[in-house]
């Protein structure tokens, strides 16, 4: 526990908690859209931004936000056009992104930084980084909560949302940019290769036991917070990689919730067996007398 007296550990913990809260709040919309792995793709693209930032000696996180946003907007435009070549275009973007990132980082004589962005490096978060993470994380959180009815409608039934006169394209682009921002701040915590886990796994866990969208969102945020906090705690005490520890805690909570939900449903079914729904009268004559 003494470890948390060091400022760098406190920053690691706060950064992880902010991301643990914000990532599922955004991820729930991606899961609802069945785009659960989009964060992974945007993460690949963000790596090129990191490389460009390191090469240009600018803040890698800031350049990554810009490059990842452009990538996410491109992905959204490809998706909205709905052509069959969409997944090929996405593949080009993803692998182009990661190859470009690796190449640019290599050129920047800062090759050690690559690992930090691929797998996360919570303990090297500077006070400036923490400010960026907190401000952007809070912005994501507020946007996702305030726009919940509209974003829910768009992700649930896009055509209906359009006939409702909602600014569907704007909301989709907003979601794309928010994904890019979340990916970029989460990159410092869990790394490009594990980003999607924090957006998706808490949502997947929560929906094992929830009935509605609002409940799922609240439970996913609570689970994300728990995974981030306990992951950093485990990492500090067992001296494991913080990013991987956070993700493994999230997956462990998924297993626990899924198992608990199954047991609970089985018990309830045994306590009160559901009556078979009343059948419709036959539409054809089955027996002629």
């Amino acid at each position: 526990m003494e470890l948390f007296q060091y400022p760098y550990m406190q920053r690691a913990l706060i950064g992880a908690l902010v991301i643990g809260l914000a990532a599922p709040a955004l991820g729930i919309y991606l899961v609802q859209r069945r785009l659960a792995l989009i964060g992974d793709g945007v993460g690949h693209v963000a790596l090129t931004g990191v490389g460009a930032g390191l090469l240009l000696n600018h803040s890698p996180v800031l350049v990554a936000v810009i490059v990842a946003s452009l990538g996410a907007i491109t992905i959204e435009l490809v998706r909205a056009r709905g052509r069959t070549s969409g997944d090929l275009a996405l593949a080009l973007l993803f692998y182009g992104g990661i190859a470009g990132g690796v190449m640019l980082v290599g050129l920047s004589d800062n090759t050690r930084a690559l690992n930090a962005y691929l797998f996360g490096s919570l303990t090297t978060i500077s006070p400036g980084d923490l400010t960026t993470i907190t401000v952007l994380g809070a912005a994501i959180l507020v946007t996702m909560l305030a726009l919940r009815p509209a974003l829910f409608a768009v992700c649930h039934d896009e055509e209906y949302a359009r006939v409702s006169g909602l600014p569907v394209r704007t909301l989709n682009l907003l979601l794309a940019v928010a994904t890019a921002v979340t990916v970029t701040i989460a990159m410092r915590a869990v790394g490009v290769l594990l980003i999607s886990a924090l957006m998706v796994v808490p949502v997947a866990a929560a929906q094992q036991v929830t009935r509605g969208f609002r409940g799922t969102m609240a439970a996913a945020m609570a689970l994300g917070l728990f995974a981030a906090g306990s992951g950093v705690y485990v990492a500090a005490n067992a001296n494991t990689a913080p990013g991987a520890s956070v993700v493994l805690m999230a997956i462990a909570s998924f297993a626990v919730v899924a198992l608990g939900g199954t047991v609970w449903r089985a018990l309830r079914r045994r306590a009160a067996p559901a009556a078979a729904p009343a059948a419709e009268p036959h539409e054809v004559v089955l027996h002629r007398s």
């Binding site: 859209r33 829910f152 929906q207 509605g212 969208f213």
Partner: peptide, 10 residues
């Protein structure tokens, strides 16, 4: 209802 979303909704 659309293809059915991944997240439950009441």
């Amino acid at each position: 209802l659309g293809a059915g979303s991944g997240v439950p909704a009441t």
